[in-house]
Simulated scan of single mutants.
Amino acid sequence: MHIEAMTASDIAWQEQALCAQTGTDFFFPEPGSSVREAKRICGLCESRSACLEYALDNDERFGVWGGLSEKERLHLRRTEGGR
């Protein structure tokens, strides 16, 4: 299995992301908890598309990334043909 090394520019968006300024509690809630506040914050974030792309490329399975929950990202992967 080949794993590409990430460069600083690959994750530079993380420093600008609003979630980095608010903490992870909203983005990784307890099972069954609301993700509404995380999605609201994501909706205001300029890094949203880079965050979602990162989550899809790295198969992030937990939390809210780029404004989408785990289930929403799974659905997106399936409709995009297994990205």
Rank of each mutant, 00 (worst) to 15 (best):
A12Q: 06
E80S: 13
C45K: 00
D10F: 04
R77F: 05
L44S: 04
K71N: 08
Y54K: 03
W13I: 11
V64R: 01
D59K: 10
D59E: 15
G63P: 01
G43R: 02
G81N: 08
S49L: 12
R83K: 12
Y54F: 15
K39M: 09
E80D: 08
A17E: 03
H2M: 13
M1K: 12
L76V: 01
S69N: 07
S69A: 07
Q21E: 10
S34K: 09
Y54L: 02
N58R: 14
E4R: 15
F26I: 02
E80P: 00
T79G: 00
G81M: 07
T7R: 14
F62L: 14
H75S: 10
S69D: 10
L56R: 00
F28W: 09
G23S: 03
L74H: 13
E53M: 04
I3Q: 13
C51W: 00
P31W: 01
G63W: 00
W65I: 01
D57K: 14
P29T: 10
L18P: 01
R83V: 13
A38K: 10
D57L: 13
P31E: 11
S34Y: 10
G63Y: 03
R48E: 05
G67D: 04
E4D: 12
C45V: 04
A38E: 10
R48G: 00
D59P: 01
E70A: 12
Q16G: 03
L56V: 05
H75V: 11
S69Q: 05
I11E: 10
R61W: 00
F27W: 09
I3M: 14
V64W: 00
